[in-house]
Computed example of a mutant assay.
Amino acid sequence: MGAFLDKPKMEKHNAQGQGNGLRYGLSSMQGWRVEMEDAHTAVIGLPNGLDGWSFFAVYDGHAGSQVAKYCCEHLLDHITSNQDFKGPDGPPSVESVKSGIRTGFLQIDEHMRVISEKKHGADRSGSTAVGVMISPQHTYFINCGDSRGLLCRNRKVHFFTQDHKPSNPLEKERIQNAGGSVMIQRVNGSLAVSRALGDFDYKCVHGKGPTEQLVSPEPEVYEIERSEEDDQFIILACDGIWDVMGNEELCDFVRSRLEVTDDLEKVCNEIVDTCLYKGSRDNMSVILICFPNAPKVSPEAVKREAELDKYLESRVEEIIKKQGEGVPDLVHVMRTLATESIPNLPPGGELASKRSVIEAVYNRLNPYRNDDTSGLSRNCCNYGHSRL
């Protein structure tokens, strides 16, 4: 749901960093939405003596950005400062971490409710949250809603979080027990997620606890023992990414990009752009966290990439010249290329991931065109690739 712009806003927010043996990059883009409602957190080194720990999260807001913004600033503190997380002595145990994360989610949700009630007019926004807390021995995946995180281990998808959708049997049972219904795969025919922070209109059933409401703020937490030899990277992303790329597709795409560049911001920008060209209409945010054993730049992969770019440049020139009188628009060029068998396209990204290369050549050959050459419009933005 939500309103859309006539043209997508493609400006990006980027960040990157490293520490604790990790490197990370992130990218977010407003896209077609009239408002940017996503937020994110990236922290190397946690308080209370947990210098070797790290925390990353993506928040996908809806009906406003207030909850997502508040969570990105305060959720980590609610997790690490509660007594369940701290445990008795020394670093927290696996069970303490899992219990503390759950408590932190419930605490911040109640805290935001109190803040909202004190204001004139309650805040109606909500947010999903997907994150990872990485200790020296474990990776803890945290999920509340339909954003998603995955771990690539030994070149394959080893683990991914499960989306919380109203149509899931256990979620549907809770919704119905709270007096609600699931229509058109939405809570009461309106909200597309069954767990979220905020969304207090769906959390006011008397006699029911916070985890028994129509929408629950309770996260699922999964701990995975780290494998120094096999762990390669983690991807956290909102559904604006997952709407158009599957788990294996995105894993393969990221792996192929890491073989041609070690710039994690650039890889994240390519993910976001590719998903836009595949037809995503939502805000898009992605964090890529690389372990020491992540794919390294390969001279052979770099050479193949350069050859592919050169081939695409020549094909664009040929398509334009073949047209004769009048220059074909960029959509025609993309659709023509989409019918061809082009070797060495990035797996998972395919032709959409080379859209910027094709557009650059097209614009160079047509420098005086002043109409919209982006090929992005409400009716034609994905060249048949979207699964929306």
Rank of each mutant, 00 (worst) to 15 (best):
F85T: 03
P367D: 13
S125P: 00
W53H: 10
T139I: 14
G326T: 05
K69L: 11
A237Y: 05
V58N: 00
G17D: 05
P292D: 01
G326D: 10
M36P: 01
K12L: 15
G198V: 01
S386W: 10
K321N: 14
S28N: 05
M133N: 05
M183R: 15
E350P: 15
H332K: 14
G198W: 00
D372E: 10
D109K: 02
F85H: 05
H40Y: 09
F105N: 05
D123R: 03
A15Q: 12
D199P: 00
L170R: 11
D262R: 08
V94M: 09
N283K: 06
V132S: 10
D146C: 08
G49R: 06
R226M: 08
A338H: 13
P367S: 08
F200I: 09
D371R: 07
E218Y: 05
Q323H: 14
G349D: 03
E340H: 03
S147K: 01
A68D: 00
M284I: 08
K165G: 09
G240T: 01
M112R: 04
I108Q: 01
I235T: 02
S96V: 13
Y277S: 04
S93G: 10
V67R: 02
C72K: 01
N344K: 12
V254K: 03
D146A: 08
F291S: 04
